Amino acid sequence: MRALGAGPGTRVAVAGLGGLGHLAVKLAVALGAETTVISRSAGKAADATRLGARELLVSSDPRQLAAARDRFDVVIDTIAVPHDIGPYLRLVALDGTLCQVGHLGSVTLETLDLLVGRKKLTSAGSGGRTGTAAMLDFCARNGITADVEVVPSARVNEVLDRLSRNDVRYRFVLDLADLDQEAAS
């Protein structure tokens, strides 16, 4: 986000409030950006607010999308499945950037969505060892951690079932301590 200029005076939107998205919101807020969450439903509004976002934009509401056209300096797309990026490009302001970090496959777009407004499409890979260390230091200074649900490994089938139903906020961590207990028995 620093490479994209996110900070005080910038408007950042995060599309998708999952494992990547919730951290993107925390980082944007800590950088001082005016932060908005974009989600398919209004059901994540309380989570968006709790994470520090100013508002939630419902992507399934054409009126909300139309009202937010050309509004954001940076849109971070954390959606992990194939989807149309056109609606997100249309939210990007003049000379702004859509940064694709969720879906790592092919994308199709109308180049006119880039041309109108001199918009940029990018992705975010690793910042290397130095960049990663700087990010971790920033997170430590700002108390940014991933929201996780710790589950004993004996419940792995339940975890897999919940994952298939998209029933996780925001990451599962399997606690393997119960394996030591079984080995000792």
Rank of each mutant, 00 (worst) to 15 (best):
G96A: 09
E34R: 14
T122R: 07
L94C: 14
G7W: 01
Q100I: 05
L115I: 10
V92H: 08
A93G: 11
G52P: 01
T108I: 04
V107H: 02
A24R: 03
L174Q: 01
V75D: 08
T97F: 09
H22F: 05
V74C: 10
V74G: 10
F172Q: 01
V107M: 02
T36S: 10
H83A: 01
L136K: 13
G128T: 06
G5E: 00
P87A: 10
K119L: 03
N157P: 15
D167T: 05
I79K: 12
G125Q: 14
V116N: 13
S153C: 15
A154I: 12
T108G: 14
E149W: 05
R118S: 12
T35L: 06
G128C: 05
A3L: 11
G86I: 02
Y88V: 03
T36P: 02
L114M: 07
P82D: 00
R69V: 07
P87M: 08
F172V: 01
A67E: 13
R129P: 13
A33M: 04
L176Y: 03
V29D: 04
V150M: 09
R129H: 15
L104Q: 13
K44T: 02
S39I: 00
Y170W: 08
D167W: 03
V156I: 15
L174R: 00
L98A: 06
A177C: 04
S39H: 06
L31I: 06
D70P: 06
T108W: 03
R129N: 10
G43R: 14
H22L: 02
V156E: 08
A146T: 10
C139D: 00
D47V: 05
V150E: 13
F172P: 08
G127E: 07
E149M: 06
L176H: 04
D95P: 06
T132H: 10
E110D: 14
L94T: 14
G16E: 02
A15Q: 01
Y170M: 00
F138N: 03
G127F: 09
D73T: 08
A134Y: 10
M135G: 09
